[in-house]
């Protein structure tokens, strides 16, 4: 004889045993509730795409901060990425401190971000994450490859080796 639930002593048990069913339903319910709360949160980086026809009146070069990520920067190899702030090369490990130093006292400073074509997207996002963590809130993404005519007037390195 199985578990006696609701059975009257002696008589036959007419109710099905629903307890395991409830258990499974509750567990499923909890799983779905957790999945929903995880999915509902949407995270990322808000940024601006500066209009392309800006080359006629470029702002003064000293105010421009361009962060550039160059190859080799394959998938999962964040340490192999080379990061430049304007013309100065910064090791990825020291980037956070350097960005914090730049952002000190001028939290509205626009920071432009760009990366070489070969750079893995996730690595670029990780470096963007460090830049944001350093206090940069206004992030502009340059859509023209650096070294093109538009970017040279923006005070960024054309070729850095």
């Amino acid at each position: 004889m199985g578990i006696q639930v609701g059975g009257r002593r002696g008589g036959p048990m007419s109710d099905p045993n629903v307890i395991p069913f409830i258990d499974i339903c509750l567990v499923l319910l909890i799983i779905f509730m957790i999945v929903v709360t995880v999915l509902i949160a949407q995270v990322g980086y808000l940024s601006k795409l500066p209009p392309r026809a800006q080359t006629q009146t470029p702002p003064s070069a000293s105010e421009q901060i361009v962060i550039r990520v160059t190859s080799p920067c394959g998938p999962g190899q964040l340490s192999s990425c080379r990061v430049f702030i304007n013309r100065e090369e910064v090791p990825p490990g020291q980037l956070l401190g350097r960005v914090q130093q730049i952002m000190q006292g001028r939290s509205t400073q626009m920071i432009f971000f760009t990366a070489d074509d070969d750079v893995n997207y996730e690595n670029a996002m990780r470096i963007l994450d460090v830049v944001r963590q350093g206090g940069a809130r206004n992030i502009g993404i340059l859509t023209e490859p650096i070294g093109a005519t538009a970017s040279e007037s923006m005070g960024s390195p054309a070729t850095v080796q």
């Binding site: 795409l49 998938p75 750079v119 997207y121």
Partner: peptide, 25 residues
Amino acid sequence: RRVKYGDVRNLMKSVQASGFANVGL
């Protein structure tokens, strides 16, 4: 995450050319 940044940049270029300025990655 496996695409190259250049691919994303080309997509953003296209988005920009369509007249959008605010993007979120």
